[in-house]
């Protein structure tokens, strides 16, 4: 069987979900697919989905790796706020673009290191360990911005939010490249398999000689790094670091993206591409709601109902049922065999 075939069999439910949602939006809003170029930048609703989805997509990359090890990282939203604040502070303090980015990314790595040490060395449960930074992180960010929205006008930094490369908005370029790079690193090296092994059975992996401690720290650092990229983009987008609101609740969207992407919260097998599609699904729902013109009181309900439908359709029970109804009764025995070996 070809690798590509396996790949598509893995992510077709996510792609189908995305297609259905985009289809629904375009029925309600016929101008959806109009794409033009404004100010040398691609412009249109599909671009908005890709562009606005950047923070959650980036967070989902790190979150997928963490969840694959049977962990979870609740701190990513707060880490976004910290790194956004660091970048705004660095640029307004006159450190120059290179140094500022370096500081922001280092801050993300440091946050990841902290989480990783709590989880891998002290053995604190991931949900508790990362809760600490989730709560404290915004406070740290507020200390950096001194409670206000720290604004800047440095064109170099703004480029990461509203610039474009070959007409493609920079945030889109960043998350697509990051996704591709991480996928490549994880699948071309043995990291992917080792991470999955840790997620399925930590003790057995340790006994097989896998350096579980270092790997666990590494995935939390990767998550911190992704969060810092998202934080820089979010700050650059509004030309200011908003410690109170940057990345607020986005950790939950990131977890949801991973779940929609079909990676189990119990760890093990993961797919980065599917998580990225999951992030786009979430953003497509958000953008669709905004385009629909419904009163804002309905936003959360509409979103919840759509997510509920997606998750129910993806549930194991429903999959069995779908396969069952899609075959004629004589084929049932055959079907059952197929569901055992996904």
């Amino acid at each position: 069987m070809s690798g590509l075939g396996v790949f598509f069999r893995r992510i077709w439910p996510q792609l189908l979900t995305l297609a259905v949602i985009v289809g629904l939006i375009s029925v309600m809003f016929p101008g959806f697919f109009d794409i033009s170029i404004a100010n040398g930048r691609l412009y249109g609703s599909p671009i908005d989905i890709l562009n606005r989805g950047a923070p959650v997509a980036l967070l989902a990359i790190g979150m997928t790796l963490v969840i694959a090890t049977r962990g979870i990282d609740l701190s990513v939203g707060a880490v976004m706020a910290i790194c956004g604040a660091v970048s705004a502070w660095g640029i307004t303090a006159g450190y120059g673009l290179g140094a500022t980015l370096l500081m922001a990314l280092s801050a993300g790595l440091a946050c990841g290191l902290w989480n990783g040490l709590l989880v891998a060395v002290l053995g604190i449960q991931p949900i508790v360990a990362t809760l600490i930074l989730m709560v404290a992180g915004r406070g740290i960010a507020q200390l950096i911005t001194e409670g206000a929205i720290l604004t800047f006008n440095h064109e170099g930094l703004i480029f990461f939010g509203s610039g474009s490369i070959l007409s493609v908005p920079t945030p889109v370029v960043i998350w697509v490249l990051t996704g591709a790079l991480v996928t490549l690193v994880v699948r071309r090296s043995a990291l992917g398999m080792l991470i999955e092994a840790i997620g399925v059975n930590l003790r057995a992996s340790t006994l097989a000689g896998v350096n579980t401690r270092v790997l666990l720290i590494a995935v939390y650092m990767a998550s911190g790094l992704c969060a810092s990229l998202a934080g820089v983009i979010a700050a650059a987008d509004i030309r200011g670091a908003d410690a109170n609101n940057a990345g607020l609740w986005l950790e939950l969207d990131a977890i949801l993206a991973v779940v929609i992407g079909g990676t189990s919260l119990l760890g093990g097998r993961f797919s980065l591409i599917a998580s990225l599609v999951g992030a786009l699904v979430i953003q497509a729902v958000n953008t669709g709601i905004l385009l629909s013109g419904f009163p804002p009181e309905f936003n959360l309900i509409i979103k919840a109902v759509i997510i509920l439908i997606i998750l129910v359709l993806q549930s194991p029970a429903m999959r069995t049922l779908l396969v069952f109804f899609s075959r004629d009764p004589r084929g049932v025995a055959e079907t059952e065999k197929e569901t055992v070996t996904p």
């Binding site: 043995a190 398999m193 080792l194 999955e196 092994a197 399925v200 059975n201 057995a204 992996s205 006994l207 097989a208 000689g209 896998v210 350096n211 093990g268 097998r269």
Partner: peptide
């Protein structure tokens, strides 16, 4: 011992890969 969800192939390669 075994990593239940991983394949026979991956289980066999695990220690060497590590």
């Amino acid at each position: 011992g075994v990593i239940a969800d991983l394949s026979v192939r991956e289980n066999i390669a695990l220690a060497l890969q590590a």
